[in-house]
Write a protein that binds this DNA or RNA. Structure first.
Length: 375
DNA sequence: CGCAGCCCTCAAAATAGTAT
DNA sequence: ATACTATTTTGAGGGCTGCG
């Protein structure tokens, strides 16, 4: 007998029987469940589990639509009254989210890029966080989560967290202090380093360009129209280029004091449509968020929320491998009552009918059919 | 030269949006 | 409803250019 959407409970029970859920210090966390008729987040909360095994058993018995754990640690995680609940500390977390356009594979490529930027360019280089303290998760659908596993960071207060995420998102960056060379400040870390990278990129990109090509290039990256001629002229001058290579930007500043401001805007505009566009600021700032539990299934995609290694971000293939490893590829038979589009490596239309497919595809297929029927 | 128009910047204020 | 943010609007101000 093939499984249909009516058998999802059975399929999920099978899944959770084998799954291993991952929550550190579960006895300090608030656990929350999303019911199948919930549409605005989990409604069954707060729930307390002393051990991860008790949560697994509970899920096998009641395979809810979603399972979440608080990023905060509480003295009494199951206390309803927030005053008595007593927040002890909160994981420092980052939530990257983005609408899926194109295939899931392409989505993974983009999100991997952004997550790597966050980890390598900001957490490691700017904040000196050790890579082995950085935990990465794929949330199961649109999001990637990054958690810093460091006790000092867990004790950061809300305003510390705000400062940190604002820094990463490039808010309130002071343009007068961004570029080295216009004053006496040496190149150092932080946004100066990001700014310096832009200078080097521009030099590389305009190497050997004629004036017309430079004008086009500077227009494209967003230098104001009435100054592209000026900066193109400057960059055509070998002496200027050499000075810039050596880190002396006075040559630009002296020619027009606004040029460095223009470059700052280029840098920040680009960042805002890149990493900053996918970072959810509020999640990092808040000390009481819920994160989907790694090992649990996301109801919308049918994919599991999974732990990743930083190196898994090098290719979507690694993420798919992990998904397959977690869910399993033993064949199961399903019967679809409606046509669906399965978007895994690529979009694939399945018309209604019976299929035998690996478990890691079968679960998404059933959940997508269920989702389609609800909308 | 003086003047108008254009393009841009900056900051303040108004408005819109979002999460408890 | 409230607190907090983000976005949009507005207006002052300054440099540049073209024109009479």
């Amino acid at each position: 007998m093939p499984y249909t959407i009516k058998d999802l409970v059975i399929v999920l029970r099978e899944y959770y029987t084998r799954a291993s859920l991952d929550i550190t210090d579960i006895h300090r966390r608030e656990i929350a469940f999303e019911r199948w008729n919930d549409f605005r987040g989990p409604s069954l909360r707060p729930v307390y589990f002393q051990y991860i095994d008790s949560l697994s058993k509970f899920l096998i018995e009641y395979p809810y639509a979603g399972v979440y754990a608080s990023t905060g640690y509480y003295l009494d995680p199951n206390e309803v009254d927030m005053n008595k609940k007593t927040l002890m500390k909160t994981d420092l977390v980052f939530d990257l989210d983005m609408k899926i356009e194109g295939t899931r594979y392409e989505f993974f490529e983009k999100m991997c890029k952004h997550t790597k930027t966050l980890i390598h360019d900001f957490l490691i280089k700017d904040f000196g966080i050790s890579p082995d303290k950085i935990k990465v998760e794929f949330s199961g659908n649109k999001g990637f989560h990054v958690t810093v596993d460091d006790e000092d960071m867990r004790n950061m207060d809300v305003s510390d967290r705000r400062q940190m995420i604002d820094y990463i998102m490039g808010l309130k960056v002071d343009k007068n202090n961004l570029f080295s060379g216009n004053k006496t400040s040496p190149v150092s870390g932080g946004w100066r380093r990001h700014a310096d990278n832009l200078i080097r990129e521009i030099l590389k990109h305009t190497e050997g360009s004629n004036n017309g090509e430079m004008v086009d290039y500077f227009l494209e990256i967003g230098i104001p129209k009435n100054r592209v001629k000026k900066i193109s002229g400057l960059l055509s001058n070998a002496r200027v280029r050499n000075a810039m290579k050596a880190g002396h930007l006075n040559v630009l500043y002296d020619a027009d004091s606004r040029l460095l401001g223009d470059l700052k805007n280029v840098l920040l505009r680009r960042h805002k449509s890149g990493l900053a566009a996918v970072l959810d600021r509020a999640v990092t700032v808040s000390t009481h968020r819920l994160f989907r539990v790694p090992g649990s299934i996301h109801r919308k995609s049918g994919l599991p929320c999974i732990n990743l290694e930083i190196s898994d971000l090098e290719s979507p293939d690694f993420i798919f491998e992990k998904i397959i490893q977690v869910v399993g590829e033993d064949p199961i038979e399903i019967e679809l009552g409606h046509d669906i589009v399965l978007d895994l490596y690529e979009k694939e239309t399945l018309s209604k009918g019976t299929y035998t497919m690996p478990r890691w595809k079968a679960i998404p297929a059933l959940l997508i059919e269920k989702k389609n029927m609800q909308t």
